[in-house]
Design a protein around this nucleic acid. Structure first.
Lengths: 141, 141
DNA sequence: TACAGCGATGAATGTGCCTTCTTGTGTGTT
DNA sequence: AACACACAAGAAGGCACATTCATCGCTGTA
């Protein structure tokens, strides 16, 4: 088989000479979904690091009840938040960051700081790109 | 209209009492896509911080020619990488991290370190979750 | 003239996330 | 009886991302 471009090692765990990037990608995929970062930051800023379902729903504008449930489940599955159900009627459910979740706040804060410092520049570059090479515009020398 | 659950402030920029999270989400959405993190880390580890298209294609197993192009475009649009075309035949195109892109390496390294330290625990929690509350399993006693 | 080489782009398909609407649970209230 | 509450989970649809296949650009070479 003359595979000119098919010489892939088929070893996705061996990217960039390190095993980490695969895991980093998984983390970014989860934390990079539409609502996770809001939930994490909201819980971090809640008093006592705790909040109940309905509080989170009010805190995060635009999130639907369903997406709140699903996103909380995913974060719980990763061990970043803990769920506590109180046997009351009507039900009360509280969420909080686990120690694992809190430990993630540090690197996340690094990203937040970077965005605070550089996001304006990113938007400018985007605008320039969209005005030039981005769209199909000719540049008049 | 009796909107029982429709009392959304419709101000998505005002999440968590800060304006940052919206931008952080945009960054995470971009960097959290399937290939961006690999490209950034690969470029960071390339000699001289530069690599040409075909090198990146070999370095990152599994990526298709098209996704490499698209992901590079997006990162270029955000100002994280720079593209240089050499007027040769066959064409040669080299990519490198901009200073903006390099400045992002610091917070990203924070995430990489966190993953290195905690990913094993995350996988364990996931396994436990999938074995218990995650799937539809009953717990005996 | 046919092909190799590198990079980019287009079309068509598939997959998964996100959204919206709806239903369910159990008790206390009207 | 009918409804409210707070939380959860199902079904159905849309849309954005990802994949695969195909083609184009230009030149030197067999």
């Amino acid at each position: 088989m003359g595979n000119a471009r098919r010489d892939k090692p088929a070893d996705p765990a061996f990217v960039c000479g390190h095993k980490d990037p695969m895991a980093v990608r998984e983390l970014l995929t989860r934390v990079g979904d539409k609502w996770s970062i809001f939930l994490i930051l909201s819980l971090a800023r809640s008093l006592g690091g705790r909040a109940r379902f309905s509080e989170l729903e009010k805190t995060i504008p635009g999130i639907s009840q369903r997406m709140l449930t699903l996103t909380l489940r995913n974060l719980e599955r990763d061990g970043l938040i803990a769920r506590e159900v109180f046997p009351e009627i009507p039900p009360r459910v509280e969420y909080e960051l686990t120690s694992l979740g809190k430990s993630l706040l540090d690197p996340l804060q690094g990203l937040v700081d970077w965005v605070t410092a550089n996001w304006e520049q990113v938007k400018e570059v985007q605008s320039g790109f969209d005005a030039g090479r981005g769209s199909k515009r000719k540049i008049n020398s």
